[in-house]
């Protein structure tokens, strides 16, 4: 069965047609060509497909596309403003937090979910917040440092503004 879904993705209202069994991940990639969200396992065990749904971190492979009717979805493509990167994206570049880059979209979204609720995380809190995101290249060292750097940067700019 195919149905209409209307929701907000990265700030834009979108409408698309999906098979009822289709996951949000497949809808993003195949119907909306938003291929920044990656598939690593399709079982919720790697986090490469992480997105925010109404501000909550989710594996889009574990969500039926039909479920986001009326919801607000944020993918990696929606992290940056038109002309400047999100501080987490900046920190990942500065801190060499990516090697191959396949897990990067999911990690960025997971890091945003963390920093949206906690701008002063400990190293341990960062490690547990991204424990659902497998990275095989970095050993997480530079990823964790970059998220801590981004938090510090965001704290500083929060003070300024």
């Amino acid at each position: 069965m195919r149905s209409h879904v209307t929701c907000t993705i990265n700030g834009d209202e979108v409408e698309f047609l999906v098979d009822d069994r289709q996951t949000l991940l497949d809808a993003l990639r195949d119907e909306l060509q938003l291929t920044g969200t990656k598939e690593g396992c399709a079982t919720g065990d790697c986090g490469a497909c992480s997105v925010l749904i109404d501000g909550r971190l989710n594996c889009s492979c574990l969500v039926f596309a039909r479920e986001v009717e009326g919801a607000d979805v944020l993918t990696v493509e929606g992290l940056a403003d038109a002309d400047h990167l999100h501080p987490i994206q900046h920190a990942f570049l500065e801190g060499a937090a990516l090697q191959c880059g396949i897990c990067t979209p999911g990690l960025l979204v997971a890091a945003k979910a963390l920093l949206d609720r906690n701008l002063k995380p400990t190293e341990e809190e960062v490690r547990y917040a991204i424990a659902g995101n497998l990275c095989r290249c970095t050993g997480y060292d530079k990823v964790v440092r970059s998220i801590l750097d981004a938090a510090a940067e965001m704290r500083d700019s929060a003070v300024v503004s």
Binding site: T35, L85, L93, L98, G101
Partner: peptide, 10 residues
């Protein structure tokens, strides 16, 4: 890295 921007923006 030269390919960094593409990889953090999806």
């Amino acid at each position: 890295r030269p390919d960094g921007l593409e990889k953090v923006t999806g």
